[in-house]
């Protein structure tokens, strides 16, 4: 027994040997490219101005201006109404998209792919970009925000709906068809009971996201509490921004908690 047999070296194909280096070089190239071309004005970031702002802004953020509470809550309420309207619109309008994109419902490859692409295309854009366009179209009012929320939500809900529909138990559908049920009857007795809880759950989940999204739409004039954020930051009224922040954090957290509770009971 030799005390000193080293383990044999691992046998690797050339690609396996090269792979870590290739990945490393690609990553390194990306980072070099990034850090050499990004223009951060460090002189401004670390300037007297910054220090002054820091000492002014931060303490004010943490001492909310409670006198604005009524105004802020009013606009927060409007924000919630916008989110609700947009989400509900989307929750309904996404249903046909979901069915068209589901392979087990619509046996037409072209329709499936086209709906999936449409849904993907919508999801490529942040709500704020959509809202910017709609503000240009219908003017700066909550309506623009609601439409942006609704369209953005259709993208996600349509995709999730189609996944739910594709995962249902088709045996039930088959059994009903064997009983002589027509298409509408199959839909109401075989399909809808299977998908309703998940559809609702996703719609409520999307409402959480839409509440967050609605809080900022006002920044470009699409209604809600964001309107106030723009005014307060332009006026450098940081204690009002502090209050808005606090209200957003509390309301969003509460909505997340309530929504999680409802969704737990649904599924």
């Amino acid at each position: 027994m030799t005390e000193f047999t080293l383990p044999p070296k691992q046998k690797k194909t050339p690609w396996q040997k090269m792979r870590p280096y290739v990945i490393g070089i690609i990553l390194l190239a990306i980072y070099i490219w990034t850090f050499t071309s990004i223009e951060i004005r460090w002189s401004r970031v670390f300037s007297q101005h910054t220090i002054e702002s820091l000492t002014r802004v931060i303490p004010q953020l943490f001492s909310p201006d409670w006198s604005a509470f009524g105004k802020v809550m009013g606009l927060m309420w409007e924000t919630l109404l916008m989110a609700y309207t947009g989400t509900l619109m989307a929750a309904i309008l996404a249903i046909p998209f979901g069915f068209f994109a589901a392979r087990n419902m619509v046996k037409n490859k072209f329709l499936n792919t086209a709906s999936k692409w449409a849904l993907n295309a919508i999801r490529a854009f942040p709500e704020l970009v959509l809202a910017l366009m709609f503000v240009a179209a219908v003017g700066p009012r909550p309506f623009a925000g609601v439409i942006a929320i609704a369209i953005g939500s259709i993208g996600m809900l349509g995709k999730l709906y189609s996944e739910v529909i594709e995962s249902i138990d088709m045996n039930v559908v088959e059994a009903l068809e064997a009983n002589g049920a027509n298409k509408i009857q199959v839909l109401f007795y075989g399909i809808i009971p299977q998908i309703i809880p998940e559809f609702l759950s996703y719609a409520i989940y999307r409402f959480e996201i839409d509440v967050r999204a609605s809080t900022i739409l006002g920044i470009i004039g699409a209604g809600g509490i964001g309107t106030l954020i723009t005014i307060a930051t332009t006026n450098r009224n940081w204690s009002e921004v502090g209050l808005i922040l606090l209200v957003i954090i509390v309301v969003v957290t509460l909505i997340d908690i309530i929504s999680a509770q409802i969704r737990k009971r649904l599924v």
Binding site: E3, F4, T5, P7, Q10
Partner: peptide, 22 residues
Amino acid sequence: PKEDQALAYRSLQRVNIADKLY
């Protein structure tokens, strides 16, 4: 250290599974 690597290999040999090393 090399001793430790050798020891690990030797241990695998003792339970007849050194061929699965990697």
